[in-house]
Amino acid sequence: MAKLFINCRQAHWLLSQQCDTRLRWYERLALRIHLRACDWCSIVARNFAYLSRAARHLDR
């Protein structure tokens, strides 16, 4: 059975995967539950989005 309660390491992994592929439903759910409770991982989620956006402008 898929785990719904994940730690920060697993959340970081899913946050990165989410940048590259569609997560499975239970992964999205586990990540959402974790992000609700974890401000630090929520910051990392925003950092990853920022990084992705910045990289697209690297040839400026």
């Binding site: 730690n7 920060c8 390491r9 697993q10 970081h12 630090w40 991982c41 910051i43 990392v44 925003r46 950092n47 920022y50 956006r53 910045a54």
Partner: peptide, 19 residues
């Protein structure tokens, strides 16, 4: 090193603000 033995972050990341 970013995580403790239970897999939780050991230090707060910085909020990067407005891109």
């Amino acid at each position: 090193d970013l995580f403790d033995h239970s897999g939780h972050r050991v230090a707060a990341p910085l909020e990067w603000g407005d891109p």
